[in-house]
Amino acid sequence: MGERVLVTGASGFLGGYVVRDLRAHGYVVVAAGRRAEALPDGPTFVGDLDDLGRAGAPDTGPVDVVVHCAALSSPWGRWAEFEHANVTGTARVLGYARRVGARRLVHISSPGIYAAPRDRLAIREDQVDPSRPMNHYIRSKLHAEALVRAATGPETVVLRPRGIIGVGDPALVPRLLRVHERVGVPLLHGGRGLVDLTAVENVALAVRLAVEVPEAQGRAFNVTNGDPRPFVELLDQLLTGLGLPLRHRPLPAGAVYGIAAALEAVCGVLPGRPEPPVTRYTVSTITHSQTLDISRARDVLGYAPAVTLDASLASYAEHRRG
């Protein structure tokens, strides 16, 4: 191996795992991120994507592959913030990759681009409707993917990992636990909606395969554990592992969706535009089934999940219990 890879967002959850996995498999990795104290040991680039894209930026040395993990990910926020972080930021990374002569760029996108207020099962990579994004985050990821597809210079590969979980998760499970602590987790449609999650180690594996496999060029890939389960089943397994009571709040899905829409309207005009307690996107993700077809990743990348959901949930619970 010995190729040199720059990973953006390396101070974040996924980026840190990607850096460690690539280094464990013989790659020389430059870990790029804004927070020097959170970057893994080894070669680093400290700065944001504007800094990276600037022609006079500090020299990172020759780079063969760029893995773009950095993103602003939230169900709520101003369009200008998402546009700068996820659209302009991606353009900066593409410009950097061209400047250093990288052979390939692996772009981490989001299956949020498939989101709709209805069940969607075994979604394939081409089943995207860009006309009605449910929030600014999704809109920005659609724009970023369009930039990557149109890019000239390095080969490009797009990964869409769904529901990333694991030790160090700063968002998905902690948000759920905060709701559980305050009021109990709402169960809409009895919590029967299927949820497709991905152990973070498996996403890092998919990234490495996207770096290595020649046939991946120019293609997008869904990435999950391939083990969709009812939301309530996963919730109860997590809470039991953490030694927490099973606090459910059965609620009518239609009413909650309407309340979320009203809260978004109110928070959108309040000073500072505070994040609503619940958004339509969040309601949709825990009400409706959304599962991804990962056959392309299996067939083209040779992807096979290495860490099971049960193992991932157990390790998260063990780490949190200390």
Rank of each mutant, 00 (worst) to 15 (best):
V7W: 03
S11F: 02
V18Q: 01
V19C: 07
R20A: 07
R20V: 14
D21C: 15
H25W: 06
Y27L: 06
V28I: 14
G33A: 00
L39R: 00
P43Q: 07
T44S: 15
G56M: 11
A57P: 00
A57L: 11
V67W: 10
C69A: 03
S74M: 12
W76P: 05
W76C: 06
E81M: 12
H84P: 08
A85H: 02
N86W: 00
T90M: 06
R92P: 12
G95S: 01
Y96M: 11
Y96H: 05
V100W: 10
A102Q: 00
I108H: 09
G112I: 04
Y114F: 14
Y114N: 03
A116L: 14
R120K: 11
L121E: 04
I123L: 13
H136M: 05
Y137G: 09
R139I: 08
R139E: 02
K141H: 13
L142P: 00
L147A: 06
V148G: 01
A151C: 03
A151V: 01
P154A: 11
T156S: 03
V158I: 13
L159H: 04
V167E: 05
V167L: 09
G168R: 09
R175T: 13
L177V: 05
G184C: 00
V185A: 14
V185I: 12
V185D: 09
L188V: 10
G190S: 02
D196M: 01
V203R: 13
A204Y: 11
V207M: 15
A210C: 01
A210K: 05
V211K: 09
V213L: 04
V213Q: 06
A216D: 00
G218I: 02
G218K: 04
N222G: 07
V223K: 01
D227W: 04
V232H: 11
Q237F: 13
L238G: 00
A253C: 12
G258E: 08
I259K: 13
A261M: 15
E264H: 07
A265F: 10
C267T: 07
C267I: 05
V269L: 14
V269F: 10
L270P: 07
L270T: 00
P271W: 05
P271F: 01
R273M: 10
R273T: 13
P276N: 07
P276Q: 12
P277G: 11
T282S: 12
H288W: 06
S295A: 13
S295D: 15
R298S: 14
D299G: 12
D299N: 12
V300M: 07
A304W: 08
P305A: 07
L313T: 09
L313W: 00
A314K: 11
S315T: 14
S315N: 11
Y316K: 13
H319M: 08
R321I: 06
R321V: 15
